[in-house]
Design a protein around this nucleic acid. Structure first.
Lengths: 205, 205
DNA sequence: TTGAATACCAGACATTTGTATGGTATCCAA
DNA sequence: TTGGATACCATACAAATGTCTGGTATTCAA
């Protein structure tokens, strides 16, 4: 028999292990849990897992392989890597996404992540909206947006973050900083990249 | 025999199906693919899958159940789930972390994620630091912090986000909003939970 | 016309994997 | 002491699942 551990200690680690695997999209089998914890019996792993289910820390679909899940209802969206872009020049969006200079960061999104990218913000034009220089905005590509949305658009060949406002027949790109002027593109001349769905600020590396 | 479909058409849909399931963290079995496409033979599903692997559209771990994977970008950053807390009462931090009411969010961190949690911000006291109500701050637990760090501390039995400033012999908790007053705890009476290492704002569900 | 390529089917087999039953050892409280 | 609770082990069985062999029908190009 293996060393007996204090009550609950191994179980906490099993839960951690499960969370990592499940979030990574690779639900483990009971025997993989056994392996990971060097149990000499499958049943040891199974007992921990079943107890975690009873405690509500996990759920499972009985009978199906790799059937343990993280409990909802707050459905935990999966992570997927999205490209982090630095500077984006006009027209070069596709290539920039293919080979991002900033690497990838993880985003949780309900739908597909194919049309999502991240962009590092330069400039202080959105400071009153709580978007500071160096912040990262996460953008879902879409050709249109609603009034009031924070969007990323190409202005003078560069990607900028602005507040979109619809006025009568035209759209305007408003900064959130009194020191900057609104941008009013000619009708039909707005190249919208997408809508900002998340803002992140990394304070420490 | 089922209807014969044009070349490549079914396969594209199989790939779509696989992507959805894999992104959702629930890799399907061959037979689940068979079911989804109403194949009358397992082999039909398997052939599509194997061809997708040959084409590089999928990868797989042979022999393991639910072994098909997305080919990834080469380096998938290490995500780990971190508990998202709502309101934190004094002393209840440990329990709140064990059983978070906000579920989990994914964080990429250099070190261990054991001592990291996330907290939903209420109130406008940090608005000038670009932290708005509803934002999520990600916190590394640590007993001390440097002057100038944004920290989470227990004030009147509740967790609050403030800017830490060290003045001579004492520390002060400064809001980033002129409408609020600094908090000056009695010396040695500061219960620091940790330091804010990241800020997030979710603009869209 | 022939043969290769594609899409699919049928049935079987072997491995992986979930599940069950019963056992040993340690701790702790009544 | 006694009994329960906890942690772990050994082994077996059945269901789920990956894999294989061989087959039919359709399309298309040589």
């Amino acid at each position: 028999m293996a060393a007996r551990t204090p009550p609950g200690q191994t179980r906490r680690q099993v839960l951690r292990f499960m969370r990592e695997r499940l979030i990574a999209g690779r639900p483990p089998t009971v025997r993989e849990v056994q392996e990971a914890f060097k149990f000499r019996s499958v049943q040891s792993a199974r007992e921990h897992l079943e107890i975690l289910v009873e405690e509500g820390k996990l759920t499972k679909e009985p009978g199906v392989s790799r059937g343990y899940r993280l409990p909802g209802p707050p459905l935990i969206p999966p992570f997927a890597p999205v490209p982090l872009l630095g500077q984006v020049q006009a027209g070069a969006l596709t290539e920039a996404i293919e080979d991002p200079d900033g690497g990838y960061i993880g985003v949780q999104s309900a739908g597909s992540n194919d049309d999502i990218f991240a962009l590092k913000v330069t400039g202080e034009s959105m400071i009153d909206a709580g978007i500071l220089p160096g912040d990262v905005v996460i953008v879902r590509c879409q050709p249109t947006a609603d009034s009031g949305d924070i969007v990323v658009a190409l202005v003078d060949g560069e990607a900028t973050v602005k507040l979109l406002k619809k006025r009568r027949q035209r759209v305007e790109l408003h900064p959130a900083n009194p020191a900057f002027e609104p941008i009013v593109p000619a009708p039909g001349d707005l190249s919208l990249l997408g809508k900002v769905i998340e803002v992140r600020r990394y304070l420490e590396k």
